[in-house]
Computed example of a mutant assay.
Amino acid sequence: MDDVTTELRRVIRRWQQLPADTAHENAGLVRELAQDLADRTRAQLGLAALAIPDLGEAALADQLTVMVYDACRVGLESYALNGLTQLRRALP
């Protein structure tokens, strides 16, 4: 879990440093990972997928954090780590 926490912090730090227009342009990347983690977590629990509400760019870091920790709780730690690493590399 330490690796996931470290990578999550890196992603959030980068996200928070983006100018507003750049964050807006890249919000889909963050939202996509958060939704993917939510879907996989619910599937792991035998539940139907639910859409994460669009609360804007300011809330994305918090939404991603919740989804990462939920995914880790159901055994998707390596999947979450891989997704976070790819996201960090994709962000400007």
Results as ranks from 00 to 15, higher is better:
Tyr79Glu: 15
Asp3Met: 15
Leu91Ala: 08
Leu81Pro: 02
Leu84Asn: 12
Pro92His: 04
Cys72Thr: 14
Arg10Ile: 05
Val74Pro: 14
Pro53Arg: 04
Met67Ala: 14
Arg10Lys: 13
Ser78Trp: 12
Arg73Ala: 14
Asp21Ile: 01
Ile52Lys: 01
Ala38Gln: 12
Ala90Asp: 04
Pro19Arg: 07
Leu64His: 02
Leu64Thr: 01
Tyr79Thr: 13
Arg13Gln: 14
Pro92Tyr: 01
Trp15Ser: 02
Leu60Pro: 09
Val30Asp: 04
Glu7Cys: 09
Arg73Gln: 15
Leu50Ala: 14
Ala80Asp: 01
Ile12Lys: 11
Ala27Asn: 08
Gly75Trp: 04
Pro19Ile: 02
Arg89Met: 11
Asn26Val: 00
Thr5Ile: 15
Tyr79Gln: 06
Leu8Cys: 07
Thr65Met: 00
Ile52His: 10
Gly46Lys: 03
Leu33Cys: 06
Ala59Gly: 06
Gly56Asn: 08
Leu33Trp: 00
Asp21Thr: 00
Leu37Asp: 03
Val74Met: 11
Gln17Pro: 05
Asp36Lys: 01
Asp70Glu: 15
Val66Tyr: 11
Pro92Glu: 10
Ala20Tyr: 04
Leu33Ala: 04
Gly46Phe: 11
Arg89Asn: 02
Arg9Cys: 01
Asp70Asn: 11
Ala51Glu: 15
Ala34Asn: 07
Asp2Thr: 09
Leu87Asp: 12
Arg14Leu: 10
Ala51Met: 12
Pro53Ile: 02
Ala61Leu: 05
Ser78Ala: 15
Ala20Gly: 02
Asp39Ser: 05
Asp39Glu: 12
Ala43Asp: 15
Asp2Lys: 13
Leu84Lys: 09
Val68Phe: 04
Thr6His: 09
Asn82Gly: 06
Gly75Lys: 00
Leu50His: 15
Leu76Gly: 02
Leu87Ala: 00
Thr65His: 01
Leu50Arg: 15
Gln44Ser: 15
Met1Asn: 05
Arg13Glu: 09
Arg89Gln: 15
Leu55Arg: 14
Ala90Trp: 10
Gln16Cys: 03
Thr41His: 01
Arg89Phe: 14
Leu55Lys: 10
Asp21Lys: 05
Gln63Ala: 10
Asp54Thr: 10
Val66Cys: 11
Leu37Tyr: 04
Met1Tyr: 12
Leu33Lys: 10
Gln63Asn: 07
Tyr79Met: 08
Leu91Thr: 04
Arg88Trp: 05
Asp3His: 14
Asn82Pro: 01
Ile52Tyr: 06
Leu50Trp: 09
Asp39Met: 07
Asp39Arg: 07
Leu76Trp: 00
Val30Ile: 08
Asp39Gln: 08
Leu18Tyr: 03
Arg89His: 11
Val4Arg: 13
Leu84Ala: 08
Asn26Lys: 01
Ala38Asn: 08
Asp54His: 03
Gln16Lys: 08
Val4Thr: 08
Glu32Met: 09
Tyr69Val: 05
His24Tyr: 06
Ile52Ser: 13
Arg9Thr: 14
Arg14Cys: 07
Pro53Gln: 09
Gln35His: 02
Leu37Lys: 07
Gln63Phe: 05
Gln44Lys: 13
Val4Leu: 07
Leu47Glu: 12
Leu18Ala: 06
Asp36His: 01
Gly75Asn: 00
His24Ile: 06
Gln35Thr: 01
Arg88Tyr: 11
Arg40Cys: 08
Gln86Phe: 03
Val74Trp: 11
Leu81Ile: 13
Asp39Cys: 05
Arg40Pro: 03
Leu76Thr: 04
Tyr69Leu: 12
Gly75Ala: 00
Arg14Tyr: 08
Val11Asp: 04
Leu60Met: 14
Ala58Leu: 10
